[in-house]
Design a protein around this nucleic acid. Structure first.
Lengths: 207, 207
DNA sequence: GTCTATAGCCTGATAGAC
DNA sequence: GTCTATCAGGCTATAGAC
């Protein structure tokens, strides 16, 4: 230790990626300039171009980094030995926690759904959605064989994510007096979603 | 008639708004230049500035136009004299049809949820969400008094919208062989959502 | 690996003729 | 109401010194 001056290592590239994630999540691809990212890192734009060939490559690398850092956590909950409903609960709880914890990740997903070309959608699918989605489809088949498992899987993910998407709109919707100022805790969202889903699955068990 | 040359009236302003909606929905505020809009309309950028003081005002006017043109349709379904569940069904069906019919409108909503400042979120809430949301909250209170009506209202809207949001991701998710090529008809989405919700509400009626 | 400097283009916005 | 011409500044990306 103490061999290196003060802060940085040879990881300028990773630092750039990290700041790029922050800015791209906040303002989107077109809303962020290469200069913006460089300034945030504390280097010149020319220096940044030493690490990435162009803006597109920087963006792609940032996305890959943002998606990869959440890859492991999502799937784990779905692979345990618990009962189907308990596995679903683990996923919903974990996914809500993730969406709350890594807002940049969530916003980048939303932006890709709007702007992503085939390359970037494939990146998003491969790193984030494909495996959990398949696992939830399988779960859906077990829990509600009479429903379309694909649509149901979409719905599960959508129920969790939409609560976060609409968060900025909330205070414009309710009468402030009537609506208590809720901090939108991810546990509350997860519990709500699981309440709905439990009823959906319970229905056919006692028709 | 035949008093006017060929096509245009004094509605250049509206034509600009219409093309602005198209472009802003496709690429977002930062991704569209004033020149882009002008070119699409077939006039110069300077001419456009005769109708709007600056880009921001153009964007706001375009949003207002896009939101206002869908204002009336959304609420109607919720105000009929049908039973609560039937009213909900009318809303879900109508909202899904709207989301499918006016993709620009849907994308602009998504973009505002990501980028909207307080002014623009208030615009979105006032024109699109406030009244239907309140009506669904009231419906939720009737149909499931033991659930949080606000979260439930969010969930209803989210269930419908998320299916459209994730549409571009679909073909990257499923094994093509396993997954039939579905054109994602809004009726199918509405029926699926209502199947889920009917089970949610049925549960307490026969516990 | 970082800098300054700069090329070449695009941007929002304006001036003034018609 | 529309145009051409233009401004000042920002953009991506590169060149070349250190």
């Amino acid at each position: 230790m103490a061999l290196r001056p003060a802060a940085p290592r040879g990881d300028t590239r990773q630092q750039i990626q990290q700041h790029a994630i922050t800015l791209f999540a906040r303002a989107g691809y077109a809303g962020v300039s290469v200069r913006d990212v460089a300034a945030e890192v504390g280097i010149s734009a020319a220096a940044l171009y030493h690490h990435f060939p162009d803006k597109q490559a920087l963006y792609l690398a940032a996305m890959e980094h943002a998606f990869a850092r959440n890859e492991s956590g999502i799937l784990a909950a779905l692979e345990s030995e618990l009962s189907p409903l308990e596995r679903l609960n683990c996923f919903v709880t974990g996914f809500a926690a993730l969406a709350a914890r890594d807002e940049e990740f969530r916003k980048l997903m939303q932006r890709e759904l709007l702007d992503g070309d085939e390359t970037r959608l494939e990146l998003l699918a491969g790193h984030v959605f494909r495996q959990p989605h398949a696992a939830i489809v399988a779960l859906a088949r077990e829990l509600a064989p009479d429903l379309d498992p694909y649509m149901l899987a979409d719905s599960v993910i959508g129920l969790v994510l939409f609560s976060f998407q609409t968060a900025p709109l909330r205070r414009h919707l309710a009468g402030r007096a009537e609506r208590p100022e809720r901090p939108e805790r991810p546990e509350d969202i997860a519990r709500h979603v699981m309440t709905l889903l439990a009823r959906v699955f319970a229905h056919q068990d006692s028709p």
